[in-house]
Amino acid sequence: MPAIEAATEFIINPNFTVRVKRIGLEETPVLVIDDYLANIDELRQQASKQDYCEDKQSFYPGIRSPIATKTVTALIQPVLPGFYKVLKVPNHLKPAAHPSYFSLITKQPEQLVAMQTIPHFDTSRPYYFAALLYLNEFTHGGTGFFRHKATHYERITDSKVDSYLASVQAEFDGQNGQDSHHQGYQTGSNQQYALIDSIPYQTNCLVIYPGNLLHSTLVDNNHDINEHPITGRLTANIFVEFQ
């Protein structure tokens, strides 16, 4: 990861608080860091001035703007010890920033394709992490974590990915005796997935979790589908892998 530049546009709060949640039957550790930035308004203002467009490389149901690598580095550097101590990253591995984004949800439920209506995982690789910073102050949906009922999987590792995808495809094809396709965002438990935990949207909260943990935004249709950075469900979606 590149070194942090001497002058950054925001300041880490020296008094931030850290909680560790153990998610599901696998007790996957997730870091929840409250009051992370001392001047979060600076980052919000930066995000409000960006140009946003649809991310055609992923199934993200909205628009995004890239975050500069120096900003990603500055945000992650202060919490690196947590990756090694709590998230069990081997000490010999070093962090590398992946493309990261300011993000806003804009798609209406009826506009979603099938894969956008179920929880997802970012990758099956073991030391790839998502760091999600909630930026705005308004009421918005949080982040949910799920178990796939047919396979009982919560984390989609390299050894599980093929069987998981085959099971999901069978559900979409109706091969399990039911039509599993549903319209809209996944915001709770249903026949295919159990909501096992969630972290509310609270301004200035940083949530760090393994990218192979099944997760989904718990979209509030009344407040979250909004293209405006000032009032929408604005997040900084940061991705880091240890190699």
Rank of each mutant, 00 (worst) to 15 (best):
Q178E: 15
S100V: 12
V30A: 01
K49W: 04
G62P: 15
F145L: 08
F16A: 10
I67M: 07
L112F: 11
L214M: 14
S103H: 14
S100Y: 09
A74H: 09
L43S: 00
Y60L: 12
N91F: 13
A96P: 03
L112K: 12
F102D: 13
C53A: 12
I67D: 01
R22N: 13
I225L: 12
V18G: 00
N190P: 05
A114D: 13
G82V: 07
I238K: 01
P126F: 01
N39I: 05
N190K: 13
H223P: 13
A7H: 05
N222T: 15
A236V: 03
L214R: 13
S216V: 02
D51A: 14
P210T: 00
V219W: 07
Y193F: 14
L206M: 09
L132S: 09
H181G: 09
H92A: 07
I63D: 03
E26L: 08
T69W: 00
I199W: 03
Y153S: 09
Y185S: 05
H120L: 08
S159W: 07
N39H: 00
G184S: 10
H228M: 06
A97P: 03
A74W: 01
R19A: 10
P14N: 15
V168P: 00
R64L: 03
Y52V: 12
T28W: 02
Q116L: 05
A7V: 04
L135F: 08
L25Q: 02
D55G: 08
D41E: 14
Y84I: 07
K21D: 14
T28Y: 06
T71F: 00
D179R: 10
V168T: 09
L80S: 07
V161R: 14
V79Q: 04
I156L: 05
D35H: 02
A96H: 04
Y60G: 07
E154M: 08
Q46V: 01
Y164T: 12
D41G: 05
A3V: 11
L31K: 01
P78G: 00
Y101P: 03
P29C: 04
T157L: 10
I118V: 10
L104I: 12
N136S: 14
V18S: 08
K149C: 05
L87T: 13
I225K: 11
F172M: 06
N212S: 11
H223D: 13
Q45W: 00
A97H: 02
I23T: 04
I4N: 04
D224T: 06
Q45K: 13
A130V: 14
H98Q: 11
